[in-house]
Structures are given as structure tokens and as C-alpha cells.
Amino acid sequence: MDQIQFRRHRRLRKTAAIRSMVRETHLRPEDFIYPLFIVEGENKKNEISSMPGVFQISLDLIKNEIDEIAALGIPAVILFGVPDEKDDCGSGAYVDHGIVQEATKVIKEHAPDMLVAADTCLCEYTDHGHCGVIKDSYVQNDESLELLVKTAVSQAKAGADIIAPSNMMDGFVAAIRKGLDEAGFHDIPIMSYAVKYSSAFYGPFREAANSTPQFGDRKTYQMDPANRLEALREAASDMEEGADMLIVKPALSYMDIIREVRNEFNAPIVAYNVSGEYSLVKAAAQNGWVDEKAIVMEMLTGMKRAGADMIITYFAKDAAKWLG
């Protein structure tokens, strides 16, 4: 052994204190954005069967939920509406008394410092479950943009701090930025779902939001999971059009894309740890197959290490407790 030359990397792994001191990536409750599903009615807290621990909640229960989230040090929520009535143009998304608009008002009045991001899409509000206007069984791009602008402006009027358009229509950031500016909301940032793949990991969300397409799929507007360079083109377009933050969705199978986008752009990057990723871990943990805490913390740390500044995750409350 005296004649073998090698480096002793294990010196920096010897104790917990040393490992902590040299740790490169840090996870904090401030990194998380917690999704909330808001339903109409009163005293409703419906657990989503495919997402244990995640609930649809009614407006009257939001304050208690926000108090818990704030107490854990989580600074932001993203709102998804689940209306009782739907139509072919998703009008519930952009009416002033819509479920997300009403929830935003309640949250901002009760907890002004809680950041509210509003998911800006039509799929939860259309009776066909697609993210835009349908003609000849095809989602129309430009006609859909008009309704998405109306949605974004109504959300900003209600007090949303961040507009988060998730529809993947061409030009959606440019249209929404123009609409917000013309309505006087120059200072409202856009957190764009810039890179959103047509993924099999969205299944549980569609139960939670009641937004499963009634025909076809979303492959004509969401991205092919096989494509990498397309992600950079999409992100570049959104930055040119006025996006302030870029979301990569999903996260776990797209760590390489998070890193590519991080390397290419200086804007804040958001990883969306989606419903299917959540449900897989929960199911395995409930069967005793994995250590849930260890798996979740490793997974979220990996997203930060890949380049995410923030993480939208259903694990936010659990992770914040573990970090505390």
C-alpha cells in the first residue's frame, strides 16, 4: 500500500458535522410552493384517493390551511380551481367570482404575506377537459389565448401575486404579458410552465382537479418526453416574450432538462414535483417498501442540485416538518 498513490476523499465524510459543513446543496422550507385544490361549497375536505394526504378544500376551510402552511415556513401556494359547473369555453376560469379568484381574495385578506400563484389554464373549467377552445376536435391556439388573457387579468384583479400559465399554447406568455400590462398589472410576474411534457405522471392530478380530457390527449400542445432541444426552444421563447420564472414539469424524470434550462438561462427555475411522482412514493411507503422521509428528501435535494431554485411539491408540508 505504501507505493499506491490515491486521494482520501472519505476524510470529508467521516462525521455528520464534517458532512454538513461541506454540503453543497441545501433544502429549505422557503424553497417550496404548495399546491391547493379549491372546491365550491362549505365544510369540504375531500381526500384525493390517489394522493393520500392531499385534499380538495372549500373556501371556508382555507384560512386554517394557510395558517398551517405559514407556520411551517412555506412562503407560497399555487391554486387550482375545481368548479361545480363547466362549459365548452371554460368561462369559470375568468369570471370575477371564479373559485380561484374567490380563494385568492380570502388568502390575501387573511394572510397578506402568503404569496399566491394562480394556475392559469382552462382545463379544470372546460367540459371537454382540454386547455383551450375546441374546433373540429383540435385545440385552437389563438382563440384560446384570448380566454387565457382574460383569466390572467381576472386572477391579478383578485390579488394573485404571480400568474402561472400552464396551457402550452404558442405565444401564451406574450399574450398574457400584454394583457396584464394593458390592465395596469406591470409588476405581476409570470411564472411560466415553459417546459411541460405530455407525461404519464399527471394521472392523480387529473382526479384531483377533475380535468381528464373527454377525448384524445394533450400531445398536440404538451411536449414529447423524448425531446431535449425542444425544451430549450420553448424556454427561450418564453423568456423573449416576458416570462420572469421558468417551470420544468415533471421534475423527477427530467432532471437533465432542469440542468439544461438552468445552464442556459439566468431566470429563477422552478421544478414541479408532480402528482404521479408523489403517489408512487406514497404507495411504496404505505406498503413498507421504502423509507418515505429518506426518499422524499433525496428526491427534492436532487431537484435543487439539478438547478431548481424553487419546487412545487405536494410533499411541501411533510418536508418542511422534517427540515424543522
Score class of each variant (00 low, 15 high):
residue 2 D to R: 09
residue 5 Q to W: 14
residue 7 R to L: 03
residue 8 R to G: 10
residue 9 H to Q: 13
residue 10 R to S: 10
residue 10 R to C: 04
residue 14 K to E: 03
residue 15 T to I: 08
residue 17 A to M: 05
residue 18 I to Q: 12
residue 21 M to K: 15
residue 21 M to G: 13
residue 26 H to T: 13
residue 32 F to R: 02
residue 39 V to S: 08
residue 41 G to N: 04
residue 41 G to R: 05
residue 42 E to Q: 08
residue 42 E to T: 08
residue 43 N to M: 06
residue 50 S to Y: 06
residue 52 P to N: 06
residue 55 F to T: 07
residue 60 D to R: 05
residue 62 I to L: 11
residue 66 I to T: 04
residue 66 I to Y: 00
residue 73 G to T: 14
residue 73 G to A: 05
residue 75 P to S: 13
residue 75 P to D: 12
residue 79 L to M: 15
residue 81 G to A: 14
residue 81 G to R: 07
residue 83 P to G: 02
residue 83 P to T: 14
residue 84 D to E: 10
residue 85 E to V: 09
residue 87 D to V: 15
residue 88 D to A: 15
residue 90 G to Y: 11
residue 90 G to K: 10
residue 93 A to V: 12
residue 97 H to V: 06
residue 97 H to F: 09
residue 102 E to M: 08
residue 102 E to A: 06
residue 102 E to G: 00
residue 107 I to S: 12
residue 109 E to W: 00
residue 111 A to I: 01
residue 113 D to N: 15
residue 116 V to R: 02
residue 118 A to I: 10
residue 120 T to C: 14
residue 122 L to E: 04
residue 124 E to C: 05
residue 126 T to L: 01
residue 127 D to Y: 15
residue 127 D to E: 01
residue 129 G to C: 04
residue 129 G to D: 14
residue 130 H to K: 08
residue 130 H to D: 03
residue 133 V to K: 07
residue 134 I to A: 06
residue 138 Y to I: 02
residue 139 V to G: 01
residue 139 V to H: 09
residue 141 N to L: 03
residue 142 D to S: 10
residue 143 E to D: 12
residue 146 E to C: 02
residue 150 K to Q: 13
residue 150 K to V: 00
residue 156 A to T: 06
residue 158 A to R: 05
residue 160 A to W: 04
residue 162 I to S: 08
residue 163 I to H: 05
residue 165 P to I: 07
residue 169 M to S: 06
residue 170 D to I: 01
residue 171 G to N: 13
residue 171 G to R: 02
residue 173 V to E: 08
residue 176 I to A: 07
residue 178 K to I: 04
residue 178 K to P: 01
residue 179 G to A: 04
residue 182 E to H: 07
residue 184 G to N: 03
residue 185 F to Y: 12
residue 186 H to S: 13
residue 187 D to K: 11
residue 188 I to N: 03
residue 193 Y to Q: 05
residue 194 A to F: 00
residue 195 V to I: 11
residue 195 V to C: 13
residue 197 Y to F: 12
residue 202 Y to I: 14
residue 203 G to P: 05
residue 203 G to L: 10
residue 207 E to R: 04
residue 207 E to A: 14
residue 208 A to G: 14
residue 209 A to S: 09
residue 211 S to E: 04
residue 215 F to M: 11
residue 217 D to W: 06
residue 219 K to L: 15
residue 222 Q to I: 14
residue 222 Q to Y: 15
residue 222 Q to F: 15
residue 223 M to T: 04
residue 224 D to K: 04
residue 224 D to N: 08
residue 225 P to I: 08
residue 230 E to G: 10
residue 231 A to S: 01
residue 232 L to S: 13
residue 237 S to E: 03
residue 237 S to I: 12
residue 244 D to H: 09
residue 245 M to Y: 12
residue 250 P to Y: 09
residue 252 L to D: 03
residue 253 S to W: 00
residue 256 D to Q: 14
residue 256 D to C: 11
residue 257 I to L: 03
residue 261 V to W: 14
residue 262 R to I: 09
residue 262 R to Y: 10
residue 269 I to C: 05
residue 270 V to E: 01
residue 283 A to P: 00
residue 285 A to V: 00
residue 288 G to P: 13
residue 296 V to R: 13
residue 296 V to W: 03
residue 297 M to W: 03
residue 300 L to P: 09
residue 306 A to W: 00
residue 307 G to R: 12
residue 310 M to S: 12
residue 314 Y to K: 00
residue 314 Y to N: 00
residue 317 K to V: 14
residue 320 A to R: 13
residue 322 W to A: 10
